[in-house]
């Protein structure tokens, strides 16, 4: 057993070194237990800032830098590809949440009819309330392991490697690995930007073509529902700020065609009691080139976070 242990650790160490040498870094495999753990950390802390949204905020706002800039603690509760409003509503309902919220809201989530019943957000929120003690402990340990060891990266599982090798596909490091705080540090130099941009535009087009945009009355009802969540958070001493994260080029054009800012965002900003920040209105937020039309590269994300923090401080939002 001892000899087997020595051989095992030697091979495992070698495996770890090989992948690090290939440019891989540790990455968390995102799932509801990890989200739940971060969600729980946001409770009971008046200085907590919950970061709500989807992939734009996950890649665009670094919680560590935000914490350094505005103080308190930042908790990434965004869920990739999902509607952020159910998370905002949950934060509003939970009396244990006494912190503030930065909510990234893309035009479509604001103005389109959404059936959230089957999506990840609904599932994660449901499971969050019922996570057993053992699962919480397991999540803490698994996070530590995944955050430090490259070979625990989901893309390096033997069955996935076998599939890639058998299909003759190269094994490349992920361009947006996730840190233990659920921030995704994107490096677009690792991808074929041309094809990524094209597929992003195609997906955006498809999503927007399928969407059913709310009529004015229904839209105002949605704003009223959001306002209800905002008020619940405000009543407990927290603040809410909605941020429209940058989008560029064709993606931005599709968004504007389907959900014109004037008819939706501007109305929303007028109706809601929370603060709203549209990237196009502020020089510090409007100078970024979204690499795939929708997301920021890490160096831009750092600048964006600093500029946003400066703006929040200047407007005395989230800071005294």
């Amino acid at each position: 057993m001892l000899l087997a242990g020595c051989v095992f650790f030697s091979i495992l160490g070698g495996w770890e070194i090989i992948w690090r040498y290939q440019g891989f870094s540790p990455s968390i495999t995102d799932d509801w237990p990890i989200w739940s753990q971060i969600r729980r950390q946001a409770n009971g802390d008046a200085d907590a800032v919950a970061l709500v949204g989807a992939s734009r905020i996950m890649l665009g706002l670094d919680p560590r830098i935000l914490q350094d800039e505005i103080g308190g603690s930042a908790h990434m509760l965004a869920i990739d590809g999902s509607n952020p409003l159910p998370v905002l509503a949950e934060l509003g309902r939970d009396p244990d949440f006494i912190g503030s919220v930065i909510c990234s809201i893309a035009p479509l989530w604001l103005a389109a009819e959404v059936d959230s019943s089957g999506d990840r957000t609904a599932k994660w929120l449901r499971k969050y309330g019922t996570q057993p003690l053992s699962s919480r402990l397991e999540t803490r340990l698994a996070l530590q392991v995944q955050a430090h060891l490259v070979f625990r990266n989901g893309g390096l599982a033997p069955e996935k490697l076998w599939r890639k090798w058998s299909q003759g596909r190269p094994v490349k490091p992920p361009y947006a690995p996730m840190r233990a705080d659920r921030y995704r540090r994107a490096d677009y130099s690792l991808v074929d930007l041309h094809s990524l941009r094209a597929s992003r535009v195609e997906r955006t087009r498809e999503l927007h073509d399928k969407a059913v945009i709310l009529q004015r009355q229904d839209f105002l009802q949605r704003v009223a529902d959001i306002e209800h969540s905002v008020e619940q958070i405000q009543q407990r001493g927290g603040a809410v700020v909605f941020v429209r994260f940058p989008s560029c080029g064709a993606v931005r054009r599709i968004e504007e065609e389907t959900v014109p800012r004037r008819r939706y965002w501007d109305v929303f900003a007028d109706e809601i009691s929370a603060n709203t920040l549209h990237f196009a209105d502020y020089a510090g937020l409007d100078t970024f080139d979204c690499m795939d039309g929708s997301h920021l590269n890490y160096d831009d994300a750092v600048r964006f976070t600093r500029n946003l923090a400066a703006l929040l401080k200047q407007k005395k939002i989230l800071t005294d």
Binding site: A4, V7, F8, W15, F151, R152, L156, A157, P158
Partner: peptide, 11 residues
């Protein structure tokens, strides 16, 4: 060793 490695690398 093979079993340990497979279990450790499985994610």
């Amino acid at each position: 060793v093979a079993a340990l490695l497979t279990l450790s690398l499985h994610t």
